[in-house]
């Protein structure tokens, strides 16, 4: 069934000849917003995404005010959350789509259920992409090993262990602190570790 969808997408592409998306350019703009709060880069992003978001929002909301609320909210989140974008984890379009889908979901819920809750970011986490297949190396850098160790402990012990305060920063916190994109932090950690391994090799000789 997935192949079916894939072929649909492809045929759409070939019949309508859409303009090609310049993915590296989009990544670069997002990166500039994240690292240097670059308003010009943001304006480029806005001009690329906003009209498309508006068109999509109009198909979901009959009310023009609500449609532009989606544009406003989505682009505002792009500005405020750009540092959470990680180009190693997926395309900029996927990331903006996720932001837009989540905004739309919460607004729709607000209209239908009269609920002011924000559930979307729990259901579709923006900070961490749901795609984790290719990340075994990244995971490895994180507390994964520690967590596996914890999971192997008897339950009482686990509670004790989980009861301590991790003084260690998360990669996200470090990224925020250094005002760098998460992807940069990850690649720096990777490089630093690679260097360290070389040094260890030297010790052996």
């Amino acid at each position: 069934m997935q192949t079916h969808l894939l072929s649909n997408v492809t045929s759409d592409k070939s019949t309508q000849m859409p303009e090609k998306i310049d993915h590296p350019q989009l990544c670069q703009w997002l990166d500039a917003v994240a690292t240097s709060r670059d308003k010009i880069a943001f304006t480029h992003l806005f001009k690329f995404f906003a009209p498309k978001i508006q068109r999509i929002a109009r198909s979901k909301f009959p009310n023009e005010t609500q449609a532009s609320e989606v544009v406003q909210e989505t682009m505002s989140n792009v500005w405020r959350k750009a540092h959470l974008f990680d180009k190693n984890k997926g395309a900029a379009t996927t990331w903006v789509y996720t932001v837009m889908r989540n905004v739309t979901f919460d607004i729709l819920r607000k209209i239908k259920g009269n609920k002011e809750d924000t559930l979307s970011d729990d259901i579709w986490p923006i900070a961490e992409s749901i795609a984790t297949e290719e990340e075994s190396f990244d995971d490895h850098l994180e507390n994964k090993q520690l967590l596996t160790v914890i999971d192997e402990l008897p339950e009482a012990q686990q509670q004790v262990v989980k009861g301590f305060y991790f003084m260690e920063m998360s990669q996200e916190q470090l990224a925020v602190h250094l005002n760098l994109p998460l992807g940069t932090i990850k690649s720096r950690l990777r490089l630093a570790l690679a260097k360290l391994k070389v040094q260890l090799g030297d010790h052996h000789d």
Partner: peptide, 20 residues
Amino acid sequence: CRHQIAQLTDQVAEVNFEDA
């Protein structure tokens, strides 16, 4: 399923933001 969702999200995003 996580993989399938990730793939599909990529495709849907691409289609949505391609300006036909």
